[in-house]
Design a protein around this nucleic acid. Structure first.
Lengths: 201, 201
DNA sequence: ACTTTACGGCTAATGCCATTAGCTTTAAAG
DNA sequence: CTTTAAAGCTAATGGCATTAGCCGTAAAGT
């Protein structure tokens, strides 16, 4: 038995490859059997590096969330206000199109009561922080920032899920629909920003 | 073996009960073993009424989509324009909150190439028709109607998924965030409606 | 009323999956 | 050169969907 010489990192990396090759359902379809085959070892050997399939999924989710954060950050740096928001929106969509499996992995919510989800929770919080930073240019009051982020996340998330999942019949002119969505949300955020400023004044 | 006297309808009904009791993940967690236990028969006996688990899932999806269509229709009849849109939005969210499992079942997309998905496709089309009817009051040109429906679906869908999946940390003031989302989308649709009218004139 | 047939149930068996237990070997640490 | 921990292995278990094939029951025909 010539040792392959794997470690947790290599196993996770291999699983990420598999997830991404599997398209939108790659994350849900991930199986230890497939991973072991890819890594060139027997299935039970995986347990030397990973405590369970759930553990592996968590790890993949963390990596995916971090990549998404990175993408958002990269897309919006140097921009502000509506430009930053638009850039973020398109960057997220492109990430999802290019890495549908990882985007799907991004969706797993961290349970606050589950200690094992703690690292994922931290990663998710960082994403939200970056999103909040993108909104800084709108000068929204704190409570409205929370609402605005929720609205933006919802709209983008919903569109992307429907797009990846094939929920919009024909892929006809999806770009135009997405642009409209982004413009609509951007205009909405600008509006509530203006209103909140008016109230203060 | 005292016959239980089941038929396809009863089996599907029992599975729908199970899915709905299972909360948000009830649809994904549905298992023939659990269903057989609930129905009081052995697992293989289910195959006398259903050709596979996938078949059953499809059936559940159809029922769920039809219920959602009904909910939207009921909520919006007698209303028009922004009132109809608002009513639809809130009705969908309430449906999802009260029947998280069925709402999740609603998400399964019909593949156009798969003949078995045909009935589901039909059901989904009916939902879109009702949504289009809700938008009638805005007098949007046809292409914009498609875009508008996509935007609305995306926003509502995304919010509801994040809400049900626990994607928004604390459930703190989610109602307010949702109201904001609805107002924002409504305002956006009104705006593009006004713009398209202006273009024509 | 009697027979026939179709249907609704059953048990047994298969195969895929994750997971656990316990063994062996390699490679690094001493 | 020896020890030891890590990394691999095979074998076994239990949950799941699915298939094959058997048997009683209830309805349909005569």
């Amino acid at each position: 038995m010539p040792r392959v010489g794997l470690n947790r990192g290599a196993v996770v990396a291999a699983s990420i490859d598999l997830v991404d090759e599997g398209g939108y359902t790659g994350f849900a379809d991930l199986t230890l059997a497939a991973l072991a085959a890819r890594a060139g070892i027997a299935v039970p050997s995986l347990y030397k590096h990973v405590t369970s399939l759930a553990d592996l999924r968590r790890e993949i989710a963390i990596v995916s969330v971090n990549r998404l954060t990175e993408v958002i950050s990269a897309a919006s740096t140097g921009l502000a206000g509506r430009d930053a928001l638009r850039a973020m929106a398109h960057a997220i969509r492109i990430f999802a199109q290019q890495n549908p499996g990882l985007y799907a992995a991004t969706q797993v919510a961290a349970r606050r009561d589950e200690p094992l989800d703690q690292p994922l929770s931290v990663a998710a919080t960082r994403t939200l922080d970056v999103m909040a930073a993108v909104l800084r240019g709108f000068a929204l009051p704190p409570e409205l920032t929370i609402d605005a982020i929720r609205v933006i996340r919802s709209a983008l998330h919903g569109f992307i899920l429907l797009e990846l999942g094939g929920g919009f019949g024909l892929p006809d002119d999806l770009d135009r629909s997405f642009d409209l969505l982004v413009e609509l949300v951007t205009a909405g955020v600008e509006k509530i920003s203006a209103e909140s400023l008016a109230t203060i004044t």
